[in-house]
């Protein structure tokens, strides 16, 4: 296989080299055909981001593990519904992971816990900066987050890592809904350009 021929993935080079990303798409195609060995390889590549993002949102380790397991099983079950026209495999998996974490946090059982949590959201920038030993991904994301205005950075990290709805972000930062919408979008546009997403 000549990797230069399979440039079907539109995935960003932000998280991995392009070749690695294409492999992930291929793996998912094999997973869709019931290939458990391919699933193991996919698992090993994606479990860190999956567990990591869920853990960021939910914080609680045992809940995070539970949701991560559900997500990975969902990837197995629904792999045939992955549509490469919509985005790369990594994005597909990461989107499921984040959404399931959000589902969990917005479910009623988590509501009480969440009230408690929202009070002690530490400055999101520090959360990212914490992980200095970090991989290239981490460095790139951190550098790009750094290029945002403080408001943009806070809005995006509170929403994505904090699992807050934009309405809640507006309340936390004490600005209007309209301002938050715009800041999240403008910030993501800058992130996208900074990360080199097509």
């Amino acid at each position: 296989m000549n990797p230069s021929d399979s440039d079907a993935s539109r995935f960003t080079p932000a998280t991995a080299d392009r070749r690695g990303e294409r492999d992930l798409d291929d793996l998912l195609v094999h997973v869709a055909r019931g290939d458990q060995v391919a699933f193991e390889a996919l698992y090993d590549r994606m479990v860190g981001p999956v567990y990591g993002v869920i853990r960021r949102v939910l914080r609680d380790p045992s809940q995070s593990e539970e949701v991560a397991q559900e997500v990975l099983l969902e990837v197995w079950r629904t792999a045939a519904r992955f549509d490469p026209a919509v985005g790369g495999a990594a994005t597909w998996v990461a989107t499921i992971a984040h959404r399931r974490a959000i589902d969990r946090i917005r479910s009623t059982t988590a509501a009480a816990d969440r009230e408690h949590r929202s009070a002690d959201v530490s400055p999101p920038h520090d959360e990212v900066a914490e992980a200095v030993e970090a991989s290239l991904d981490r460095e790139r994301v951190r550098r790009c987050l750094d290029s945002l205005t403080e408001m943009q950075r806070e809005s995006i990290t509170l929403a994505y890592y904090g699992g807050h709805s934009y309405r809640q972000v507006a309340e936390l930062l004490n600005v209007t809904l309209g301002a938050i919408k715009t800041r999240i979008r403008d910030g993501l546009i800058r992130m996208r350009d900074c990360l080199g997403v097509s």
Binding site: A14, A16, R55, T91, V141, Y161
Partner: peptide
């Protein structure tokens, strides 16, 4: 689509070692 890719990069940046034993359970 582009924003989801940014989000994916943020997920990768949050990479965390999963608890031991999770792999066996999922498999």
């Amino acid at each position: 689509r582009g924003f989801r890719e940014v989000a994916t990069a943020m997920a990768f940046a949050a990479t965390t070692e999963p608890p031991p034993g999770m792999r066996d359970q999922v498999m």
